[in-house]
């Protein structure tokens, strides 16, 4: 992001989006994360990844539904934050769960569908984060947009990852799942309508 992108809205949202990470760090070092702080870090960073992914996906519909311009100015930042929390989440898994036992991690990725899904989602987010700046947009040109549509499978994988990891209480996976389905469904619906009508009039 160049300097011209810096404005009050972005600075405010950037700071707010950093608060969960700051709180987790503070809570960890002051022993406020309960009896199993490592598990709490993993769970919380994972949930924030999912929340930021859904926020990212909510920006276009917000713009279209209300005609606001600000959501598109935040979309990339939310996407990058999703990746940031995803990296935290991955780090807690690799370190506190597996202690960098790579053969065991490899088996986990191959054998456990929820790990496979989570890794898939993160790989996609990494590719999108790496190609999110202006220079990469220019370089990729027409291919940039189809590439960044991979955020849709990433969200599906992230929701599945959450869903498959829960023992019995499906309330939160269901809530995230419904929001994701709504945001993806809205896009399908819009596409269908655009195709259906012979004349597309855009404001």
């Amino acid at each position: 992001m160049g300097l011209r992108h810096i404005d009050g809205l972005r600075v405010g949202v950037f700071t707010a989006a950093l608060l969960p990470a700051l709180w987790l760090g503070y809570a960890f070092f002051t022993d406020r994360l309960g009896a199993n702080p490592f598990e709490a870090l993993t769970r919380s960073s994972g949930e924030w990844t999912l929340r930021f992914l859904l926020l990212t996906l909510a920006m276009s519909p917000l713009r279209e539904a209300f005609g606001w311009r600000w959501p598109l100015r935040l979309r990339r930042m939310f996407g990058l934050y999703a990746f940031f929390y995803g990296l935290l989440h991955l780090t807690t898994y690799l370190w506190f769960d597996q202690f960098f036992d790579w053969p065991e991690i490899g088996r986990d990725i191959l054998k456990r569908p929820f790990i496979t899904a989570g890794m898939g989602a993160l790989l996609i987010l990494a590719a999108l984060a790496a190609t999110s700046n202006q220079a990469m947009m220019r370089r990729l040109g027409r291919r940039w947009k189809p590439l960044h549509r991979l955020v849709y499978p990433a969200v599906v994988l992230a929701v599945l990852h959450h869903f498959w990891l829960v023992k019995a209480d499906l309330r939160w996976p269901a809530i995230y799942g419904i929001i994701a389905a709504g945001l993806l469904g809205w896009r399908l619906y819009r596409r269908y309508r655009r195709r259906g009508s012979p004349v597309v009039v855009r404001a």
Binding site: A35, N36, F96, F99, R107, L165
Partner: peptide, 15 residues
């Protein structure tokens, strides 16, 4: 859905 080879003793860091 997960391995049972290791466990985290509550209060400890290493598994």
């Amino acid at each position: 859905r997960w391995s049972q080879k290791r466990e985290r003793r509550i209060g400890e860091f290493r598994k």
